[in-house]
Simulated scan of single mutants.
Amino acid sequence: MEMCKGVKGFSLLQYVPHFDNLNGFPPDPMHSIYLCAPKQSTLMWFGDTCIDKDVLPFILTEEKQKELDDFLESIVPPHFISRCRAISPNSKSRRGRAHWKYKAHEWQMFLLYYSGVGLKGILSDEFYENWLFLVRGVSLLSYDDLTEERTALAEINLLQFCKGVGTLYPTQASSYNVHLLQHFPLLARRFGSLYQFSMAGFESFNFEIKSAVKGSQFPASQIIKW
């Protein structure tokens, strides 16, 4: 079978009756939202990025980083919301968790619950307002009773966030995953709230799948036999 740009040929799923191979695989919010836009933005705010640093007005001073860390560590949330530890790479706190150690659910908590308050006065106004477009857009798509009105409003907010990334940040910041945010309202119309097509609940099963692979030869076959 001849490979073309990494694609090895037709997927067997294309032969499954009544299955839409194009629209049947929505991107996972855990990987395509929480581990992408919030993490990418934070990398730029803390200057921990390969983007050219000659003119970066969004980089936070160490004083601002400490202010954000102090805010995050001062919060005692209810039991159903995960606590976010220090996010700055310069954190000296023993309990601190710099952003490169954040897991997906911690990015989710930071985005939806903490950042809207914690970043006010830390980011400059134009960057803060742009960030709020992302917070509002993802929050609206996370409602259990997702309505068309909420979906349409989320669509506007996510589009504004993507436009802001293009104008406020260097070109490299307009990544594939930032563009992908604009497609989530359509996906929500097809599949429901973000929670309804998230793979987060299946993450713990990855360990079970890995345990089925005993050698480097034909891992997929080993998993199928398992």
Score class of each variant (00 low, 15 high):
Leu43Cys: 13
Lys120Gly: 08
Ala173Lys: 04
Tyr114Cys: 01
Phe133Gly: 00
Phe161Val: 06
Trp107Asp: 01
Ser216His: 13
Glu2Asn: 11
Leu187Trp: 13
Met44Thr: 04
Gly201Ser: 11
Leu60Phe: 03
Leu43Gly: 10
Gln222Tyr: 11
Thr171Glu: 14
Leu22Gln: 12
Pro17Val: 07
Val7Asn: 14
Leu72Ser: 01
Pro17Leu: 10
Lys103Gln: 13
Ser32Trp: 05
Lys214Ala: 07
Tyr102Asp: 01
Tyr143Ile: 05
Gly166Arg: 04
Ser32His: 09
Tyr34Ala: 02
Ser211Lys: 15
Arg190Leu: 15
Ala200Leu: 11
Ile224Gly: 03
Gly121Arg: 01
Ser41Val: 05
Lys8Gln: 11
Asn21Gly: 10
Leu132Met: 14
Leu111Arg: 00
His179Gly: 08
Phe80Asp: 13
Thr147Gly: 03
Phe80Lys: 09
Met3Phe: 11
Phe197Asp: 00
Gly6Met: 08
Lys103Val: 12
Phe218Tyr: 15
Trp100Cys: 12
Leu141Trp: 02
Phe46Cys: 06
Leu186Phe: 14
Ser193Lys: 09
Lys101Glu: 12
Ala104Cys: 14
Gly9Arg: 07
Ile33Cys: 02
Glu208Asp: 12
Pro17Gln: 10
Leu112Gln: 05
Ile75Tyr: 06
Val135Asn: 03
Lys5His: 13
Ser142Lys: 07
Tyr176Pro: 07
Thr42Ala: 10
Ala37Met: 04
Leu56Lys: 03
Pro77Trp: 08
Pro27Trp: 04
Arg190Met: 15
Pro77Cys: 07
Tyr143Pro: 00
Ala212Tyr: 15
Val213Ser: 06
Arg85Ile: 02
Val138Gln: 01
Gly201Ile: 03
Ile156Met: 10
Gln65Pro: 00
Asp20Cys: 14
Ser82Pro: 01
